[in-house]
Each structure stands twice: as C-alpha cells, then as structure tokens.
C-alpha cells in the first residue's frame, strides 16, 4: 500500500490494564481492563469520533495511542511508524506530529506563564523556532485561532473559557501536527462558545489537512464533526462505521439506546420513549458474554448473549457491530432524514 492510501493512524488490538489493588499492602487483586482489544484506523483528513459514556475507555485508548500512558499490548502505527515500540528520542520527534487538545483548557495551562510562553514552549521543545522567529510563529498561531497578537502577553486567568480553549488549540497547532486528538474539547464550554470552537476546529482541519480523533459523549456534536464513528462500551468498540451509517442505521442495541437518549432541542419533538435501564458497568467488574446484555432491550436477547463475547463483525460494507443477533436495520429518529 502506498503511503498516501495508508491510514494515518492504525490501532490493532490495543489493551490497557490497570492493576486493581486492595487492602493496606496494595496487593494486586486483579486487573481493570480499561481498554480491551480495540482496533480502528483513522484515514488522512478524516475525523474519527470515539464515543461512549463515562468509563467506557475512550480517553484511556486515546492516551495509550499517544503513549501518554503505557499500553499493555497491541500496536499503534502512525504513518507507518510503530509508536508503541519507539525509543524516547524518535518518540519525542514523532510527538510534534500528534498533538492533544484537552477538555479543560484551564487546568492544562500553567497559571503563572503567559499565553505566548505556553505556545512558544512547544516550538522550543521541538526546536522549530527561537527568538523573534518564535514570536512570529506565536502570533501566527494566535491569528489562526482568532485571537489578536496581544493575547500572547496575557495570563490564563484573564481569558474566558472559549479564549482558553482557543489558546489550547493554538498551542497544539503551533508545532505543525498532522494528527490532533481532541478530548471533549467543548464539553466544558457554554453553548454559544461551543459553536465557535467546533467551527474553528473544522476550519483548521480544512486549512491544514488535519486528521482528528474526536473523543466525545455528546452525539449531537459528533454528528456535526465526525466522518467515522466508533462507539465504545466496557473497554471495547461495539459499533464502527461511517458516521452517516452509524447515526442513521445503528446496528447495535446500545448505539440505538444512546441515540434515543439524545434530547432534541425542540419541545414539539418531546418523546416518551423507553428509557434504557441501568448504568454502564465498571471495567473493574468481570462480566461474561456481551457486556451490554444486562441492559439490552432487544427482545431476542437469550442465554447465548450471556456466554459469548460478540466479535466486532462487518455487518454491511464498512459498518461493523458487536452483536451475535442479526442486525435490525431501522432508521433512528431524530437522526433520520
């Protein structure tokens, strides 16, 4: 496969386990399978959304992919390079090409350093620019995110939430990445500011040919940004496919329930749909069979669901789901036409 066709990021059978220690001597009493065999690819220029509820492993998977936390096993390939096998120096060089935008830009910015310092730091670490050239790059990065040059001299506490998130994006952008992991980048922001940041991320993607991994729980926003969607539950991907297919014809009962739980901002569309019972299980709880079976509303649920771990299978071209029952294709409102 030639380099231009190869997905920029390719994750194979990624596992992340944390030791579960109990008692005062901290003996390990088992493992939390936070990420339990996750595989996906992100083609160049696309946005893969990793969605799911709290504890599903979406953030852990992204951090392991970036090697911010160690993976237990699996492979991550970035433009043909095996990320998990890299030694420190080549890893440092690769990190320039993969950046991260955090949910809460306030806690990710040093309160004692100016905005300009925060952006300049990446340039210095990666030896991209220094002195007045670095100042130019800082100004340019601020301009790209819609901030005036004098913002370089301000401190994080002087900024609004939306401005801080713009700085977080400028900092990621300044080093010229190809791949940006956006971890819930707008969930801490007000509605009126959310729209500004979503639009900005889309403009930057177009102008810089960026590839995004977008981590979110808000499916209405995901529908705006994603080209592909992977739904996670209990550390596994349970549905994966082109965004239009996943939203319009969800195959897995969990995806259908998740979409049905999205509230429509329209009082005329008030629905009295069946509410999915229960909550997402903790990955520390061992569970046999399909992890969703205790909550699954599908009438065809049977004993096999409690025994067989459903593999992620291609049910229609490019659309994968982890369910041992034949998929029911139905258009889900309110995402239908």
């Amino acid at each position: 496969m030639d380099a231009s066709e190869r997905p920029l990021v390719s994750v194979r059978d990624l596992h992340v386990r944390f030791p579960l220690s109990r008692g005062m001597f901290g003996a390990t009493r088992g493992w939390v399978r936070a990420v339990d065999g996750v595989s996906f690819t992100v083609p160049r220029g696309e946005t893969l959304a990793l969605v799911g509820e709290s504890g599903c492993g979406k953030t852990t998977a992204a951090r392991a992919l970036l090697r911010l936390i160690p993976a237990t096993s699996g492979t991550v390939s970035f433009d043909g390079t095996d990320v998990l096998a890299l030694r420190p120096e080549p890893l440092r060089r690769l990190r320039r090409r993969m950046q991260l935008v955090f949910q809460d830009p306030y806690s990710s910015l040093n309160p004692r350093r100016t905005v300009g310092d925060a952006i300049r730091e990446g340039l210095l670490v990666h030896q991209l620019a220094a002195g007045s050239e670095a100042d130019d790059r800082v100004r340019q990065a601020l301009g790209e995110v819609g901030l005036r040059p004098e913002f370089a001299l301000r401190y994080p506490y002087e900024l609004s939430g939306g401005q801080r998130q713009r700085v977080g994006i400028a900092r990621a952008l300044a080093v010229g990445p190809e791949f940006v992991v956006c971890d819930e980048p707008v969930s801490a922001l007000d509605v009126s500011v959310q729209a500004q940041i979503i639009n900005l991320l889309q403009d930057l993607q177009r102008d810089h040919a960026l590839t995004y991994l977008y981590i979110a729980h808000d499916l209405a926003i995901v529908a705006h940004v994603a080209t592909r969607v992977a739904v996670m539950y209990f550390g596994r991907i349970v549905e994966l496919g082109p965004a239009a297919a996943v939203f319009q014809h969800p195959l897995m009962p969990y995806t259908r329930a998740l979409l049905a739980a999205v509230l429509s901002p329209d009082p005329a569309a008030r629905r009295s749909h069946a509410v999915l019972p229960g909550e997402s299980p903790s990955p520390a709880t061992p569970m046999a069979g399909c992890p969703f079976h205790p909550r699954c509303p599908d009438p065809r649920k049977d004993a096999a669901c409690t025994v067989t771990v459903p593999p992620l299978e291609e049910k229609s071209p490019g659309h994968f789901a982890a369910c041992i029952k034949e998929p029911v294709v139905e258009t889900t409102l309110p995402f239908g036409p």
């Binding site: 729209a195 808000d218 705006h224 429509s264 309110p334």
Partner: peptide, 21 residues
C-alpha cells in the same frame, strides 16, 4: 447555536455562532 441532531455531513454543517462571550 445548539447542535441539532442531524445527518452527518449534510450541507449545513456550520453551526451558528454568537460572537464574543
């Protein structure tokens, strides 16, 4: 500004903004 449930990649992909904060 509220993202409405919609089909992904349909034309009106840009959200309406309120400028400022």
């Amino acid at each position: 500004a509220v993202p409405r449930p919609r089909l992904p990649n349909s034309p009106a992909a840009r959200l309406a903004e309120i400028p400022g904060s």
